[in-house]
Simulated assay, not measured.
Amino acid sequence: MEVHDTTVRGVDVGPETRCAHYDGRTDVIALRFGCCGRFFPCVECHDAVADHDPEPWPRERFDEPAVLCGVCGSTLSVDEYLDAEFVCPACDAPFNPGCAAHYDRYFEGVSSHRS
Rank of each mutant, 00 (worst) to 15 (best):
L76I: 01
C45K: 08
T7W: 08
D27M: 08
A30I: 01
G70S: 12
E55Q: 14
C72S: 11
V87Q: 15
A84I: 00
V71Q: 15
F95Q: 08
T75D: 15
R38P: 05
H46M: 06
G98K: 10
G14F: 02
H46N: 08
Y81V: 03
C99W: 12
P15W: 01
E64H: 01
A48V: 01
Y106E: 11
C99K: 04
C36L: 04
R59K: 09
F62I: 06
L76N: 13
R105H: 14
E55C: 13
E64R: 11
R18W: 03
T75Y: 14
V11N: 04
V78G: 15
E60C: 05
S74F: 06
D27Q: 10
R105A: 09
Y81F: 14
D12V: 00
R18M: 06
T75K: 13
Y103V: 01
F33A: 07
F86N: 15
E80N: 10
E60P: 04
D47N: 10
V78P: 13
D53T: 02
S74H: 13
V28I: 10
C72E: 07
R59Q: 09
Y22R: 14
G70R: 10
D63V: 00
G24N: 07
L68V: 00
G24Y: 02
D12T: 01
H46W: 09
L31W: 04
A93P: 08
V8M: 07
V78S: 13
V8A: 08
P97A: 13
Y106V: 06
T6M: 09
G98Q: 10
R9I: 00
A84C: 15
L68S: 14
C35N: 10
L31A: 09
D63K: 07
T26Q: 13
R59V: 01
V3P: 05
L31K: 14
R18T: 05
R32A: 15
A100N: 14
S77A: 08
H21E: 04
V67K: 15
P54D: 05
A48P: 02
V3L: 07
V3W: 03
S111R: 06
C19G: 08
G98E: 15
N96S: 15
E64D: 11
D51Y: 03
D12W: 00
P65I: 02
D5T: 00
C69S: 13
I29N: 11
G14S: 04
G24F: 01
G37F: 13
P97T: 07
R32Y: 06
H21V: 00
C45F: 01
R105C: 09
D5K: 06
D47Q: 06
G70L: 08
